[in-house]
Design a protein around this nucleic acid. Structure first.
Lengths: 243, 243
DNA sequence: ATGTTCTTTGCGGGTTCCCGCAAAAGCCGG
DNA sequence: CCGGCTTTTGCGGGAACCCGCAAAGAACAT
């Protein structure tokens, strides 16, 4: 068994290396990559290796690396190893995991025991292991309680990118009014109607559109990585438009 | 000499501990704190300790901790130790450093030598040490080349928070039109006028307001921590308004 | 086929935003 | 005090946004 570690922080990398050695004595080789791009290359070279992948990396994030790896080799087992359980990350991961692939998601704050257990579960038993906290945000997200549907999330990302209603309608192939309906659902769910106090009698409001975006960021529905990915997709789409 | 380490990641904490011991043999005690709040408490107890402070921490960030510590003890020497050189962080730090206080800013990606050198320079020589990359974004920010003035940055934060033009005018004590002037300067500097391609002849545009915010985030002028802080200030202001 | 429910679409108007234009108000060297 | 200079403010109009209302469609059980 070979294990490929993709992690840009040298401290965490060597920590992972030790943990893999301790948890998987049957492992014959541990390869290290210090960035997402390097990880993709090494995954191609060692095409039976299991992978431990950091999510936050510069410039090529773990999600992008995992996507290309899974595209070439859908059965690969990947254990994601991340600082946060932000909904944006969780959604990003579950969006790209192929059907039937085994994967894991553990937080860096987890104990070494949990990490070793996860390593054995996924790489030996071929069984998904998802950290309890992550499960929490997953449920939050897919359950209806305050969660966003994929359609709503799509539109949320679009206004975050700064698209106009008209542009969203074009991009998502729906009417202008439907876009605005979705927006209202989003505004409701993000509870964005709080008024700012005012010395004069009348009360000024928030700009709902911008307010929704930052509320989403503050609630960790969106984060830098998600925006970066979405921006890249947007540029692709623009390129395709004027073909 | 005493040194207080404030860092939530245990790996980095013990790495710092070792580096301090190696670089500062005259140091008599090293205290560790695992969060911003704990750091503030320990800083009060050990009121001559120098501080090494991580910036990204949950829930209380290093900038907030540093601000309260400096408020109580303005001469304290603090070495900031961060993953990124985002303009939002750099601006946040230089906004709170008291006049004449010695401080440092080194990146986690720096070599151990650089770290030790910085520890000696600031804690022994009482001399500022700012990582080269950070200097770069500092210059970018305060020099006129594509940089934002404080006034513009303030407004940028305000639209990011979702305030309406009217509300910004009230908050910053200026006329509506002046706010909109500032907005146009911001739109210019962020170069937000790119049109999305369109099948019909006419071309749809971005929503400049939202587009400016995410462009700023993608360029790392804004990030989660900055928004969080600004949101707290905003809530304070709203409270004061309806007194 | 009929009724119920949910989603999508169109219309209209009130509000906010974006911005060109020009007058008014500060800032300085003469 | 006076001509420049930048910055601030007011006005007006066109566009985009927010949203209530109601008709048209789609999905599904009876």
């Amino acid at each position: 068994m070979k294990v490929l570690i993709v992690e840009d922080d040298p401290l965490h990398r060597s920590y992972l290396h030790e943990s893999v050695n301790a948890a998987l004595p049957e492992c014959s080789a541990v390869i290290e990559a210090a960035s997402g791009g390097e990880g993709e290359v090494l995954a191609r070279q060692h095409d039976k290796a299991h992978i431990v992948m950091d999510l936050q990396m510069q410039p090529r994030t773990g999600i992008e690396a995992a996507r290309t790896i899974w595209r070439e080799r859908p059965g690969t087992r990947i254990l994601f190893w991340s600082n946060y359980a932000d909904e944006a990350y969780v959604r990003g991961v579950s969006r790209i995991v192929p059907d039937g692939a085994a994967y894991g998601y553990v937080l860096k704050s987890a104990s070494e025991e949990r990490l070793k257990l996860a390593l054995r579960s996924i790489f030996v038993e071929n069984q998904c292991v998802i950290d309890r906290e992550v499960r929490g945000t997953q449920a939050m997200s897919f359950g209806q309680t305050g969660g966003f549907t994929d359609a709503e999330y799509e539109i949320l990302v679009d206004i975050a990118l700064g698209l106009t209603d008209r542009a969203i309608a074009d991009r998502r192939r729906m009417s202008l009014r439907s876009v605005q309906n979705r927006l209202q659902q989003i505004y409701d769910k993000l509870d964005v109607y709080q008024a700012t106090g005012q010395t004069t009698g009348s009360e000024s409001q928030f700009n709902l559109r911008s307010r929704a975006v930052t509320t989403a960021i503050l609630r960790k529905l969106l984060n830098y990585g998600a925006l970066e990915r979405a921006e890249a997709e947007l540029q692709d789409w623009i390129g395709g438009q004027k073909h």
